[in-house]
Every structure is written in C-alpha cells, then in structure tokens.
C-alpha cells in the first residue's frame, strides 16, 4: 500500500522520483547494474551492452514517434550515420572517444533535422514513407561514398581507449555504455517534465491547437527529430566501438523496424516503455535460441528454423501488442504498481 506520500513543497511534488521507496529501488537498481559485470560471464555482458545501446536508440525513437507522434523508420540509418562518424573520427583523426560520441550525436542530429523537414507537411503513413526514403538514401551514401566509408568493405576500428584504459572486451565496454544509457534515459525523463516535452506531446495530440497555444510547430518538430537522431547517433557510435567494424550491411532497414517494434511493445510515449521494449525485443531472439537448443535433439533442422521463427515471433508480438496492449509493457507495469499501491484494498 502506498501511504504517507504527502509533499510540503511544489519542488518535491515535481521530483522525478517522488517517494523514498522509489529512491531506494533506484539506488538498488544502480547498485545491481554496477556490480553486474563482476558476476556475469562474457555472454551476459555482451547482451547487457547490446541492450544498453538499444535502450538509447529506442528512447530516441520514442521521443519522436511516441511523444511527438511523428512516425520515423529511419532510426537504424541514423545509427549508421553515428557509427560511421565514430569510425571515421577514430581511424582518421584519432580524436578522444567521448568527443567522437558527441560528434556522432551532433552530426546525426543535423541529418535527422533535414530528414524531419517533410514532417511539417506530411503526417502518419506519408511521413513513414518519407523517412524510409531517406533511410535508403543514407544506405546508398554508406555504400558508395568510398573515400569516406570505404564502400561495401566498411571500416574496422581499434578498441576505444580513454586515458590509456582500453575498452575492448564487453567487461570494459559495459562501464562506458551503461552509464551513457543511464544519462540518456534520465535526460529524456527530465525533458518531459518541462515545457519542451509538453510541447512535443501537444503536437502529437492536437498540432493545430498547439500552434494557437503558442508552440511554433516548425521549430519543435525539427527539434524532436534532431534530438531523436542525436540519441540514435550516440547509440550508433557506441555500436561502432562495440562491434568494431562498420559496414553498410550493419544497419539494415529491418533494424529500423526492430526499433519501432520495441517502441510499440514497450509503450509509445513512455520512457519506461523504451527501456522495457529495448530489453524485451533484444532478449526475445536469445530466448528463441534457448528454445532451439532444447528442441535440437528432437528436431533435426531446429537451427535452420530459428531465423524464420524469429521473424514470425517478432511479427506476432507487434500484432499482439497492438491489439491487446496498445500501451505496451509500460502499461502492464503500471497496472502491477497500481495493484500494490492499493493492496490490500480492492483494486
């Protein structure tokens, strides 16, 4: 039961984590995240890093699609821009890692703002097509701008290195990627406590009355695209440091659909949903792999089935969530929370 949560100041009521219980849970979660690498094996660290990269990208996509209502199917291509930025900066100029990541975010934000220009005129399906088009244009650039991207052969990177510490293995990369993911998620949560976040939601819900209420649509739609792309760029940069080879094939169009699916499954317009969606969608293929492992003694071609089954499961999940739980995993979580807040009274 949730009791004794009365506040004495508006600032306390506006806090992101407004009850002591929430703060204790948060501290516990941070502690678990910090200690996780010392107990987990290589495989789980690898998965954790991948999940954290996806959390950043999905949070970014949720800002533009879930909160601002502008459907974008270019998130993977934007990640590609970030990854190439880092790869080029690292191999040609050898600039510091954090600077490279910021540059990746900034350049991708600029690209995203340009891609977002059609959003001023078109919405919904039409905007989705426009972003698909720009995603294919970016792929073409990755594959053919040989002097910068080395075409189809791609770019290999040395391991990231900060102040002489090398971030090569997942164990070390974990301590680079996860804090950045934390920062990204907290920044996004902060955003939606202020006028900028409210403006995004207003544009999603009723853009015409938002304009009459004093929100310049042009500026805020482009800002949303740019911010979302900044997240994608940073995620792509981390991706480059994580896999250490960037090719045009690294960011296929289905990867964009994967991110959109994560937003839908997690919960559109929910920061928590971005986290849950990214974790869930990244782990589903692993669970399927486990299933294949169990089945293989009984089914001779279980491994060959993995790929089609994965596609079917992804498709089924998206359809299932759209029909039965349109607000995603975040809503399920809220229901569970509400149950415990009201327990033992009738819910």
């Amino acid at each position: 039961m949730r009791i004794a949560t009365a506040k004495e100041s508006y600032a306390a009521d506006e806090a992101l984590f407004d009850t002591p219980t929430q703060r204790v849970w948060l501290a516990l979660f941070v502690a678990v995240c910090a200690l996780f690498p010392f107990t987990a094996n290589e495989y789980w660290l690898y998965m954790a890093c991948l999940v954290a990269i996806h959390v950043i990208s999905v949070t970014g996509l949720n800002i533009v699609t879930g909160f601002t209502g502008l459907v974008s199917l270019g998130q993977a291509a934007f990640m590609g821009v970030g990854a190439y930025t880092v790869a080029v900066a690292e191999t040609r100029f050898g600039t510091p890692v954090l600077l490279n990541l910021i540059a990746a975010g900034a350049i991708t934000a600029a690209v995203g703002a340009v891609v977002g220009i059609p959003s001023l005129r078109v919405k919904g399906l039409y905007l989705a097509i426009a972003t698909i088009a720009s995603s294919f244009i970016l792929h073409f650039v990755f594959a053919n701008w040989n002097s910068v991207t080395h075409g189809v052969s791609g770019i290999s990177l040395p391991p990231a290195s900060i102040l002489g510490v090398e971030f090569g293995r997942p164990f070390a990369l974990y301590f680079l990627i996860v804090p950045i993911a934390f920062l990204a998620v907290f920044s996004a949560s902060n955003l939606f406590r202020t006028r900028i976040g409210r403006a995004f939601i207003a544009i999603r819900d009723r853009d015409i009355s938002a304009e009459v209420l004093g929100i310049p649509l042009l500026r805020y739609k482009l800002m949303s695209f740019a911010l979302s792309s900044f997240y994608a760029g940073v995620a792509g940069g981390l991706w480059a440091y994580f896999f250490r080879v960037v090719t045009p094939e690294s960011f296929p169009f289905v990867y964009s659909i994967f991110f959109l699916a994560a937003v839908i499954v997690g919960g559109m317009g929910s920061i928590l949903g971005s986290i849950l969606g990214a974790v869930f969608m990244t782990m589903v293929p692993e669970v399927l792999k486990l299933g294949v492992g169990v089945m293989s003694p009984f089914l001779s071609d279980a491994v060959a089935l993995l790929s089609p089954v994965r596609t079917i499961v992804f498709g089924g999940l998206i359809i299932g969530f759209l029909i039965f739980e349109p607000h995603g995993l975040a809503e399920i979580w809220r229901r569970i929370r509400r149950f415990f807040h009201l327990w033992p009274f009738k819910t």
Binding site: N190, T194, R195, G197, R198, L213, G214, I215
Partner: peptide, 18 residues
C-alpha cells in the same frame, strides 16, 4: 502548464538537465 509555454525560456539543454 502547457498554456504558459510561450512565456517560458527553458531551452532544450536546460530541459535535458532539469
């Protein structure tokens, strides 16, 4: 709160850091 939008000055960077 949204009504006050035009009279506020918080920038994107202020907002992200709160």
């Amino acid at each position: 709160k949204l009504g006050r939008h035009a009279h506020m000055k918080t920038s994107l960077f202020d907002a992200l850091a709160y």
